[in-house]
Simulated scan of single mutants.
Amino acid sequence: MYCGTRIRIGGTFIVVKAVFFDFYNTLAYFWPLVEDIQISACDKFGIKVSKDGIGNGYVLADTFFNLENSRLALSRRSSSELSDFFARYEQIILRGAGVGVDLEKARSIWKLISMNPKRFKLFDDVLTCLEELKAKNYIVGIISNINLKMNSIMKELGLQSYVNFCVTSQDVGAEKPSPVIFAAALKLSGVTPVQAVYIGDQYHSDVEGARNMNMLPVLIDRQEQHSDIVDCTKIKSLTEVPGLIYKWPCS
């Protein structure tokens, strides 16, 4: 039997029974670090960038990525459209790092970057958070726009014993913030939207997507790069999640 945390939203008491997570940049990141890959690739083109600058660039570029992906999913774009998209994506990354390049140079840099082998690594706070949620018998799920089969990734990262299910855009043919992918997770969990907390690192696809489904959204902002966002709960570490759920403030 699943336990739940009783909280009050708008004068009505509800019970949180499920906690859903985004995957990339919430639970896991690429290794080698994307910042290091960018620095190495740019160096081959005679471009000097800093790790902090590239980090700032990814904040801008990932916002662009999620807005564009919700407009027209990358999985539905042609190879030439994808090439144009990632050239623009790389251009935004470098602009955020203080470097201006034309689209063709950005395309060449991204092509080099995309050839670099990468794997996923968990953030250090993930297992501590999941262990506590499991001990309290919360339903735990992953909702991700990742266009990959997650079974082997979950096994490699040791997540299978902590996560009840994973729903991806590849599984349901819809990308966050579409309600379709959130609805699929809710169906698997057997809870209502107001009984679910959703945690992700992107405002548009994660916070707005969850909020539009009447779920409780939480933005994880590890590097405190979203000081402009003030209309949702924010955390810096997943170790804050269990305590946040247990002591969710009344509103």
Rank of each mutant, 00 (worst) to 15 (best):
M213T: 04
Y2N: 11
R95Q: 14
L103A: 14
G96H: 05
D171M: 15
I9M: 04
L82A: 09
N212V: 02
Q225H: 14
S108A: 14
M115Q: 12
V218S: 09
S114T: 04
H204R: 08
A61W: 07
K247T: 06
A210L: 02
I14R: 15
W248M: 13
T12G: 00
D43H: 06
S205Y: 04
S79R: 10
L157F: 10
D22E: 08
G4W: 00
P193K: 01
N147P: 00
S75N: 05
A183D: 08
A28P: 01
F182G: 11
L148F: 11
S78D: 07
K236W: 04
G173Q: 02
L159F: 08
R76I: 05
L159N: 05
F21S: 09
I245M: 10
I143F: 12
D62G: 00
K136T: 05
V49H: 01
L188I: 11
L122A: 13
S79C: 04
E156H: 07
T192P: 01
E35R: 09
E131I: 09
I7P: 05
A106M: 09
K105T: 15
D201Y: 02
Y29D: 04
I245T: 10
A73Q: 12
D84F: 05
S152E: 15
L186Y: 08
K105R: 15
P179A: 07
T168I: 01
K111F: 08
A61S: 13
D43R: 15
R119G: 14
K17A: 03
C250N: 15
F123C: 07
L94W: 10
D125Y: 14
A135I: 03
L94N: 06
Q195R: 06
V15M: 14
K121I: 11
A97D: 10
A87H: 11
D36I: 03
F23I: 04
E208K: 12
S70Y: 11
L27D: 05
D62C: 01
F13D: 12
P193W: 03
K48L: 13
G173N: 03
A41T: 11
I113A: 02
L122W: 10
I54D: 05
A174W: 03
Y198T: 07
R107F: 11
K236R: 15
T168L: 01
N212Q: 14
A61F: 03
S83T: 15
I39Q: 13
L148W: 04
L94A: 06
V59D: 10
W110N: 09
H204L: 13
D201G: 07
L219E: 04
S205P: 06
R222C: 12
Y89C: 13
A210N: 08
A18N: 09
I139M: 05
L186H: 08
K176L: 01
Q170R: 15
A41Q: 03
G4D: 05
V207M: 05
R95C: 01
L74S: 02
A196G: 07
Y203W: 08
T233R: 04
K17I: 11
N66V: 03
V197R: 02
S50F: 04
C129M: 15
W31V: 10
L82H: 04
N145A: 04
L74E: 00
